[in-house]
Simulated assay, not measured.
Amino acid sequence: MRSNPTGRQLRLGSELRKLREVAGLTATQAGRLLGVKQNQISNMEAGRVGVSPERVRTLADHYRCADTEVVEALCGMTSDRTRGWWEEYRDLLPAPLLDLAEAEHHAEQLRTSVTVHIPGLLQTSEHAREVFRQDAPELSPPEIEHRVSFRIKRQSVLFRDPPTVQRVVIHEAALRMQFGGPKVARRQLEHLAEMSERPHVRLQVIPFSAGAFAGSGQSIYYINGAVQQLDSVNLDQSHGPVFLDAEEQLQKYRVLLSRIEAIALPPMDSRDFISAIARNL
């Protein structure tokens, strides 16, 4: 029995519960079909016990779920039992941060829109360190270094083979925030320009001249799963990451991101825009 299921384990359980509810079955009824007690169904749906691919297929059959793509995606969520690198930080950082790294590791694509911050996967260590120095309550030097190293390790998804595709929109306001002073800011901007040259990183800039736009008041981090039903949205709050996965929420943020990308400068123009700001620091 798991005492602290990960975000991925919780999501698998949540999706199994949704399938059961769509089928109009109670946990007790589902248990009878499977030949187990009601509490075992509840524990599976709460992520407290493991589920095999065979059991997922059996449940889907009982629930009359004919979407084989979704069923196989759920089976894929059961088969990866390896402990990711993020587990090294289990006693050092809040659990939602570990869940974020796990979600990024398994993502098919990452989409981001930010107004006043550089996306974590594109930050230099110097920039990240200055960001964490602004946390409230104040972090100790060891806590800051743990968070910096964790953030840099998260970036491995952009350098593995094959790398995860990342689509990013950054507002000019974020580009002009000089965390750590001109030298650190210049290096951060140069790093953005360099990363934008990678074929799997699509980086766009929204200049001040673009004016108002929908979604400008928040950062949006959309994490694409193996199928659209398994997508999630991460909203970065002062108290930590918050995950959303209801279909109406996912649809809302897909529309917002598409609108935001549509008004942003094209990638090549965005790279020149970033480089021009860097030269003037």
Rank of each mutant, 00 (worst) to 15 (best):
E138V: 09
E194Q: 09
E102K: 13
P162K: 11
E15H: 14
E88Q: 15
R20S: 04
I152W: 02
E261Y: 03
G47H: 05
G13V: 04
L139G: 08
D231G: 09
A262I: 08
T115A: 04
Q218C: 14
S3M: 13
L122N: 02
S216Y: 03
F243E: 12
E102W: 11
R259H: 13
S156T: 10
Q40M: 07
T115I: 01
D231A: 08
E126K: 07
H127C: 04
L121N: 07
V49K: 11
L158T: 02
L235E: 06
E15F: 05
Y221A: 11
V56M: 07
E194V: 10
P96H: 07
V22R: 15
T28N: 00
M1H: 11
E145H: 10
R48E: 11
K183E: 15
W85M: 03
E247M: 01
E248Y: 09
M1W: 06
L97M: 14
H239M: 13
G24E: 10
K183V: 14
S125W: 04
L59A: 14
I152G: 00
Q123K: 08
V165N: 13
E69Q: 13
Y63I: 12
E45Y: 13
S42N: 06
I263V: 12
R254G: 11
V71C: 11
E69A: 15
I274M: 08
P267R: 05
P162R: 14
G217F: 01
L59F: 05
R202Q: 07
S14T: 11
G181S: 12
N234P: 06
I206R: 03
E104K: 09
T82I: 05
V116T: 06
Q134M: 10
H106Q: 14
S238W: 15
E172L: 01
P119L: 07
P162N: 11
Y222A: 05
I144A: 09
S113R: 02
L110Q: 07
P182N: 13
F273A: 02
P207T: 02
A210L: 01
L250F: 02
E172K: 06
K252M: 01
I223W: 01
